[in-house]
Amino acid sequence: MPILINLDLILEEKGMQSNELAAKIGITTANLSILKTGKAKAVRFSTLEAICEALNCQPGDILAYQP
């Protein structure tokens, strides 16, 4: 899929662990792993909003389009 998830980079930048983020935004670590590995078929706006709020970033920082 040409949509890349840069969640790992942002997490490293912010110095946050995956399980910490999962707990903050209220999703399971398994689901967060699906998102990080690019296996997710869709992302809810509510999840994206929670991630942006927790990491203090914009959706464009997490998602990137690579043709």
């Binding site: 999703i27 967060l32 998102l35 296996k39 997710a40 078929k41 869709a42 809810r44 999840t47």
Partner: peptide
């Protein structure tokens, strides 16, 4: 169902 399961 698979799409629903892979929606985060």
């Amino acid at each position: 169902m698979e799409e629903n399961q892979l929606t985060v």
